[in-house]
């Protein structure tokens, strides 16, 4: 399986986009996999009663998807050190979540990727992922 080494990453490198269709199945299955049973993540009526347009992604899933987005790119050898996310608009069921990313710093062996997750309403999550890749063989 392809996996990146530190020397294969350049500052300014752009990650491949990742587009995720936020079907109700995605929203519900990830909420349950993260043990989050809050009704707004699986109960449409409940979500609407609280003023939401529909059920929406929970934060643990947002963190998980950011992690997946970056490791899809790095391959299995990366070690994630930090994920900092600023949360924006909700990611509703029926919407599409598009991840983009750019390498913004490489320093002391730590690579920082700036990640943006956009939905139709705007930025759902923006932030950085700090990771370490294996050095040159």
């Amino acid at each position: 399986m392809r996996t990146l080494r530190e020397d294969q990453v350049e500052l300014g490198a752009v990650l491949p986009e990742l587009s995720i269709e936020l079907t109700p199945t995605v929203v519900v299955s990830t909420a349950l996999a993260t043990m989050d049973f809050t009704p707004v993540h699986h109960d449409v009526e409940g979500a609407r009663a609280q003023g939401s347009a529909d059920i929406f992604l929970n934060i643990l899933t947002t963190m998980g998807l950011v992690e997946r987005y970056v490791t899809d790119w790095t391959g299995p050898a990366a070690v994630i050190r930090r994920i900092n996310v600023k949360l924006g608009v909700p990611a509703y069921s029926g919407d599409r979540l598009l991840f983009t990313g750019t390498v913004t710093s490489i320093a002391s062996g730590e690579i920082t990727v700036e990640v943006r997750g956009k939905v139709s309403l705007g930025d759902h999550a923006t932030g950085t992922v700090a990771l370490v890749l294996p050095a040159r063989r």
Binding site: I20, S29, T30, T61, G64, E67, R68, T71, P76
Partner: peptide, 23 residues
């Protein structure tokens, strides 16, 4: 499975995805 994450490292090495910490 739910995240669509195919990274094999976790099950291969017996470690948890770090973003699962709170789970």
């Amino acid at each position: 499975d739910a995240m669509g994450d195919t990274n094999p490292v976790y099950l291969d090495q017996g470690i948890a995805p770090p973003a699962m910490a709170q789970v």
